[in-house]
Design a protein around this nucleic acid. Structure first.
Lengths: 220, 220
DNA sequence: ACTGGGTTTATGGAAAACCGTAATATTTAG
DNA sequence: CTAAATATTACGGTTTTCCATAAACCCAGT
């Protein structure tokens, strides 16, 4: 198992149980930092000292405070690290699962992306094991953003539509609701078309299947 | 918040982060036991000493080993405890979410039932807070078994049916599959009828809604 | 063997979803 | 401003789901 791991997270009380997870995995050398710059420097120094980190687990969003920072987000940290140390294993561990946030990361060679909150710790543990075996891991919620060949662009409208469908409303009813609440497009035809697009993107056989996979992906 | 809590779980490495959860909640006196009998005795003694436990968190399944036990499951422990100390707060924390396993518990006055694995820790934390406020908490996966007025009798057949539906198969296709694999009933008509029954039980408007709620409940 | 009660299956009509195509708006580019 | 591209809406035909009713089957108990 990994021997030397760095955790970068601005929350002082490192999230529920991450430490215990690492301990369960028999990882002895655990280092924690609360700033991206610190993480970068610590990693750089470790390489210089010929005792590099095996694994870095980092949050994405770091609160800004009085300390002036060069790297002000996990994204930035990841990019610069992957640039300098392409072989370094990095796991993003974030509450943020918005497609926008994530998208910039899907080609930097992240080893894993785990969503906090949901299954967080269990998934993190699984992720670490996978990464140790040379595999990658992505939380179901965001797996599509990384794995899917199709750059699925699912926007707020799609989500709203899926939610309404999943509540058991007929496409006709949804059309009426959209019309009365000024959401566009609102015609039955457009709704059909949009659902079709989603079916193709999430390759689902029918609307039921679409809702099921949307649930699995955590889209709704 | 609760002051004195007992955790009963046969796994030596008390599950990922339960301790940290309790610490986060500022609970100071945490006791752990690995056998139901020990739990029972410890609770009895605490009452005798006039320092009773505020809360008991127990697993349901305990591995049998060389030690002869009077109480050999969390269910048994819970029942005997609730019998002697009706006001004691008990939270079941288990991987087991099978209806059969749970059913015996829905009238003993359990304070909460949290499923491990899923959201486990977050839910446990929420459950503890709820219980402290005098409310009860049940993981979505099993909520139906406790909350629903309707004794929903959803059997293996129903699950299989729902799974097939959620995979996007038409009722016709499912009928064909059931016929060829010797599952009964298999006619399209019976499948329709069964889905109707499920829709009523889970009060869903249509099949899509049914699948969505089944997903939410963790039935599939 | 007969009967009655349940379950499984069959049937038919209405509603909704499905799917392709075409018409109409709306936006974009030159 | 006009033409092209794109988005939205409309429409028709097919399939599937939905819903009610009825027939066939299975299985005790008499």
């Amino acid at each position: 198992m990994f021997k030397k791991v760095l955790i970068a997270d601005d929350l002082g009380s490192i999230n529920q149980g991450v430490s215990s997870i690492l301990k369960d995995l028999k990882i002895k050398n655990i280092y924690k930092v609360q700033y991206c710059d610190d993480a970068y420097l610590k990693i750089k120094k470790a390489v210089f000292d010929k005792e590099p980190f095996d694994l870095v687990i980092t949050d994405l969003s770091f609160q800004a405070d009085y300390r002036e920072q060069t790297l002000n987000s996990g994204n930035a940290l990841i990019k610069v690290l992957k640039d300098e140390y392409p072989d370094l294993n990095i796991i993003a561990y974030s509450v943020d699962d918005r497609i926008e946030m994530i998208r910039g990361l899907n080609d930097v060679g992240l080893s894993a992306f785990v969503c906090k909150g949901r299954n967080g710790l269990i998934e993190l543990s699984k992720a670490i094991k996978n990464v140790y075996e040379g595999k990658r891991y992505f939380s179901p919620k965001v797996a599509s953003a990384f794995n899917d060949k199709s750059n699925l662009e699912i926007d707020a409208y799609d989500i709203k539509l899926l939610q309404n469908v999943s509540k058991g409303l007929s496409q006709d009813e949804i059309s009426a609701i959209f019309k009365s609440s000024g959401v566009s497009p609102s015609s039955l035809s457009s709704i059909e078309k949009r659902l079709n697009k989603l079916k193709i993107q999430l390759n689902s056989k029918n609307t039921i299947h679409l809702i099921a996979t949307s649930k699995d992906l955590g889209l709704i």
